[in-house]
Design a protein around this nucleic acid. Sequence first.
DNA 1: TATATCTATGCAATCGTTGCCGAAACTGTA
DNA 2: TACAGTTTCGGCAACGATTGCATAGATATA
Lengths: 337, 337
Amino acid sequence: MGHAVTIKDIAKILNVSVSTVSRALRDTYDVNQETKKRILSLAAELNYKPNFNATGLAQGSTHNIGVVLPFITNYYFSTVITGIQEVAYDNNYNIILFITNDSSERELSIIQNLSLSRLDGLLVSVSSNSDSCNHFQEIIDEGTPIVFFDRIASNIDTSKVMQGDYKGAFEAVEHLIESGYTKIAHIAGPKGLDFTEKRLNGYLDALKKHGLAAREEWIIFSGFSQEYGETDTYQLLQCEQRPDAIFAVNDRKAIGAIVALKNNGVIIGKEIGVIGFTDDPICTIISPSITTIAEPAFEIGTTSCDLLLKHINKKNFNPQEIILPGKLMVRDSTRRN
Amino acid sequence: MGHAVTIKDIAKILNVSVSTVSRALRDTYDVNQETKKRILSLAAELNYKPNFNATGLAQGSTHNIGVVLPFITNYYFSTVITGIQEVAYDNNYNIILFITNDSSERELSIIQNLSLSRLDGLLVSVSSNSDSCNHFQEIIDEGTPIVFFDRIASNIDTSKVMQGDYKGAFEAVEHLIESGYTKIAHIAGPKGLDFTEKRLNGYLDALKKHGLAAREEWIIFSGFSQEYGETDTYQLLQCEQRPDAIFAVNDRKAIGAIVALKNNGVIIGKEIGVIGFTDDPICTIISPSITTIAEPAFEIGTTSCDLLLKHINKKNFNPQEIILPGKLMVRDSTRRN
DNA sequence: TATATCTATGCAATCGTTGCCGAAACTGTA
DNA sequence: TACAGTTTCGGCAACGATTGCATAGATATA
């Protein structure tokens, strides 16, 4: 109904020019204290809200940032978004959500149809099967900053925020060793993926540091789902040398391991220890509760958004790569009694 | 770098007026087939993207819809959003996310600071402790349509999309009865909440239909969390007449019930059946797996978004209230052997 | 008193697009 | 040939805000 109040309305009522109103509102030019006060109070009274289409047009900035990610239906990503949203809200930015369903085609289509005029910057976690990242480079070249988080495009020169996969894995395995486990298996992610590698290396180096052997049959690469966790575990139970602990690349696979071990009557913790990665809330619900490395999802969101705002506000902000440490959460699945 | 290509650039290159280009691009006015073809192909070649700030300004519409909800870190809401996003994407709308953290103050602050000029419409699920909904009415009065989903503001005359709480509860209890349980308890939500009432009524009516008694001591009102589910269940186990089945108002409380029953050595399914509501993925992970009523979260998202688009596009679209049915998912927690 | 300086404000162009009005250029009809 | 009717298109004024430039009036300086 009616129409939203504009600076013109205020100008007419107060019998001043629109430019005066604009300047008073933005507190940046010389405006008589008295008139400024009148303008501000009338604006408040009329509940004036700037039209962002107009400001966007005039000064080339909207207060929107785009968030592009594979899913939001899991603990990790939804928590990251909550972190992003927190910083964005505090800085008066809005977030526009783009979900790729982890499909590179969808991702490409989203990026290509993106109306950059609507966005001041972009926060992205690339879909797992997208190989080429030229489309991101083009956006950066056109002047819209991008910050990558979690699943990064490593060949693009911009800020990136990741969790400490290597260190987290190292710490996880070291925890197993310190708890007295010595025959430690790893059910890993798909080969070739960045963080599969990093977590694998953390695992290997922890073993090496403590003089433990890494047997090839104890390392299984497969998908990320619970089902893979189960089948991987059944395979481990067939090994000539049966392991006494399992480091899973993520919590879902750890859950699969738990299920498989239970099905085989193995007493978890006592006979075989299990540790995961992520700290999905399920870890505390399932029995036994699962020891895991908590990923700093919320902080990943806040840091990424902070960085992006810096890129937006300082033209030539130097790209940063930030690695946030995980945190060991000790629970029942690695308690020996 | 450079600047995005505009309609003016195209006009200059082709030596036609901007209005002709605009018309050709929008395919709505009379433009010579030949020139239209030239314009379209040049636009494609130059990778022209309309500036939404400008179109928004000119015709008073952005292609943005706002989504206001309490959380996104749970299965239900993140799935709803995924549904919303799906429809929005297909119709070339973007979604801007506002998270209230389930706080009415935050909700109010968000709504009051909303720049309506940036939004064509709003999809909202109100925060649980917000009593007054005047702020929503004001937005509607100013001409921005709102569609409520899940947690609705019942006194506002606009479209609403909900799940079938009453029928779902009815069906859940009937399933228990058909499975041979006769002494059915209900661990409910907080008193006074809309869907606490509806699920309670479904429970009561199903009992009545089958000539079963509803004992007061078998109905416990408390919070929504797993912990409440546990304490409620301990309380039920103390009852003079011990129930042989529990209908939980949601899955989290059902999980609590499972935990409590396990702790007391009760064999779930055989001695006491448990049924939940939502179909959180945890239901299939936990053991025993939990029978539940699946809420149509994704469909709630798509339907709400569909409705909102109708409100946006037809000025006086008649508000509709849509109730989407849940679906019984039978699992181990209600199998008697 | 005349001139320089400053403060406070207005004017008008601009951002990219839409949409109304009307003018050529062309077609068809009498 | 004259006139009406179509097509096709250009001009121009919005939309709401920002901003460089100009200027009126007040004040200070000589």
